[in-house]
């Protein structure tokens, strides 16, 4: 089927979104590179992407069910849903599709996966706790999209909602959260990430911070300036970032 394991290879999110190494976020999940190119699943993934941007929920459901019947639910997510979501993010970032399409598409994915993927905490045991918050400002759409993408990818994440600096730091420490995703729209909120970073570093909590939102897109240096460990250019980037960090890779 053209899906050869390549131990030790890195994640390779490509423009087609079809070559990537998936760690699955699951303890004990075999590390491998999935290359769906040229496979029936690639065709399904491509059809899924088209159905998603057309917001065709019945078609998305049918395609995903077909993938589940062929590969099982976990691999259907890994080899079909995640690439489609990654491609949506890339296409939005390059200006080829709109935010409303990626939002509605990710919500459809979330709902379909939530219904068809087996629930259970067993596969997430031992993984570092991950949470997402909107820092300081009141613009919630970006966070909602990241949540949908992560959930549609089968990755567990806590939703902290909107928080100011002190509340967020307190909650991260109380929960022993190790991966913190911060979404902002306003520049002043983006600059406050630096204060969160300082407070968490002072507590020696070993928290990794990923940021996303408009200010970081308009100033590619900003995420480093505020002390983040990574920046997502679209909601789908959160998938590879969280997977990487949940596996303990830099």
């Amino acid at each position: 089927m053209g899906s050869e394991p390549v131990p030790g290879a890195e994640i390779i999110p490509t423009l087609t979104g079809l070559h990537y190494r998936y760690a699955g976020g699951a303890a004990g999940c075999a590390r491998k590179v999935c290359s769906a190119k040229g496979t029936a699943l690639e065709k399904l993934a491509s059809e899924l992407y088209e159905a998603l941007i057309a917001l065709d929920t019945p078609r998305v459901t049918a395609l995903f069910e077909e993938a589940v019947s062929r590969r099982g639910p976990i691999l259907a997510v890994e080899e079909m849903m995640v690439p489609a979501l990654v491609r949506m993010g890339e296409e939005w970032h390059s200006g080829r599709i709109a935010l409303s399409q990626t939002y509605m598409g990710s919500r459809i994915c979330e709902a379909v996966v939530d219904r068809l993927l087996p629930h259970g905490t067993e596969r997430y045991k031992g993984l570092p706790k991950t949470a997402i918050a909107v820092l300081s400002d009141y613009h919630m759409l970006g966070k909602r999209m990241v949540l949908s993408v992560l959930r549609a990818s089968g990755l567990p994440v806590l939703d902290y909602g909107r928080m100011d600096r002190d509340e967020l730091v307190e909650r991260v420490l109380a929960d022993n959260t190790k991966i913190l995703l911060i979404s902002v729209l306003m520049l002043p909120s983006a600059l406050k990430v630096k204060e969160v970073r300082s407070a968490l570093d002072a507590s020696e909590a070993g928290v990794k911070i990923a940021v996303g939102g408009a200010p970081f897109l308009f100033d590619p240096e900003l995420w480093r300036e505020v002390g983040a460990d990574a920046m997502g250019q679209s909601a789908a980037d959160a998938v590879s970032i969280v997977q990487r960090w949940q596996e303990g890779r830099a």
Partner: peptide, 11 residues
């Protein structure tokens, strides 16, 4: 009304 509810309203 917020961006998310508004997108849903449009559709």
């Amino acid at each position: 009304m917020g961006f998310e509810p508004y997108i849903r309203l449009i559709y």
